[in-house]
Computed example of a mutant assay.
Amino acid sequence: MNRSSVSDSTQLNSHIPKHFVLVLLICLILLVVCVITSLAFGSRVVKLQDVLDGLFHPNVDSYGASIVQKRFSRTVFGLFCGAALGVSGALMQAVTRNPIADPSILGVNTGASLFVVCGIAFLNISTANQYIWLALAGAAITAIFVFGIGSMGRGGATPIKLLLAGAATSAALSSLVSAIMVPRSYVMDQFRFWSVGSVGSATWDAVATFTPFLIIGLLVGIISGPALNALALGDELATGLGIRTGTLRFIAAFAGVILCGATTALAGPIGFIGLISTHVIRLILGPDLRFVIPMSAFSGAIILTISDVIGRLVGSPGELEVGVVTAFIGAPILIILAMKSKVRSL
């Protein structure tokens, strides 16, 4: 075993990135700003005083304060979904050692969508709890399938092979979704708004249903961070450091699938959040996953909430669904990343 590599791993797990405290403080401030703007902007713009009344004085009898209270569940749900997708993207990139891995790019979102459509069409499901379990099953099966296909042949699971496998799988599953929906108008009516990706219909029941999955996924992801740092140095070195690479990959991937599947079940397939948020944090703080994983939760929450507000402003007096906004932002970023030579491995 290479002693310098072991030394690098030890330094990676002990060094605190420069400006970490400053970045954390900026993220907290941005989160507060996102919450205020999300509560203030919509089909009707609410004054700051009404926002404060709606948050801290719920008994105040004003139209603006009542609007804020109705938007609060949507804001909290959006923050939770963004955090989940950010951490899910960071975990998938770490497990696959692929800097362009993301639930939407690897077809995981589409797999979850297919299972939800099948549940609506053949099992008559209609509740959030039922959506979640089907979406988790679809996300897990699709993730395993895409990684298996991408690992075939010489070189193993390279970024480009995984990207192609994910794109092909996503296209095939999308065709199956359409084939199931088209002859069944009632399925199409129930599915079409969900399939775009939106947090607009969020309720406190959805937040309560989602919270346990978010907590489990976040805790497992954060705890896995130090070991994933060693995995980034290669399987042989990680094994030499006493890490069971197969078990680690399974646990981290499990956390990523939980976060992605639960989000997709309740908000629809929102893409590119995991890709964008993780790259922003890695660009600022470096590759240490002890910090990238939790900070991706902050950046994911911020990006999704901002995208939701943009969708409301652009689509006013209606709204543009957040999944459309994130796709519009994320697609060019994916093209740029795929064109870089560094995309071969993390």
Rank of each mutant, 00 (worst) to 15 (best):
S201L: 04
R74E: 08
H15V: 10
L52W: 13
L228M: 12
P294I: 08
A265D: 05
G42K: 09
A171K: 10
V220F: 10
V177N: 14
S316H: 14
V108R: 00
S7L: 14
H57I: 04
I105K: 05
M152C: 09
H15T: 14
L162Q: 09
I29K: 01
I335R: 04
G268R: 06
K70Q: 13
L85Q: 02
R290C: 01
Q69R: 15
V309M: 08
A206F: 08
L313I: 13
A179G: 14
F80I: 12
A232W: 09
L283Q: 15
G268T: 07
D308H: 08
C81T: 08
M92P: 01
A202M: 02
M295I: 07
S185H: 11
K18E: 10
G330F: 03
P58L: 03
P269Q: 09
R282Q: 14
L22S: 12
D189R: 13
D102A: 07
G234D: 09
F193C: 00
L123W: 14
A255R: 01
P212H: 12
V46F: 09
I222D: 05
G119H: 09
T96L: 11
F115E: 02
A262T: 13
V314A: 10
S185W: 09
A128G: 13
D61T: 07
V108E: 02
V45E: 11
A157R: 06
G234Q: 12
I216Q: 03
M181G: 06
E319L: 06
F328K: 05
V177M: 12
I180Y: 13
S316I: 00
P99V: 04
G111Y: 01
G64D: 03
L48F: 15
D61M: 11
F213I: 04
P103N: 02
G200A: 12
G271F: 06
W194T: 01
S185L: 12
L176M: 15
L91W: 07
L176Y: 14
F145D: 00
L12M: 14
F122N: 03
A83E: 01
T96H: 07
F147Q: 06
I100Y: 04
A65P: 08
R312H: 03
A301G: 15
V207H: 02
L31Y: 03
I258M: 09
F191D: 00
A168Y: 12
L48Y: 11
Q49Y: 10
L22V: 13
A297Q: 03
I303Y: 02
I36S: 02
S4D: 12
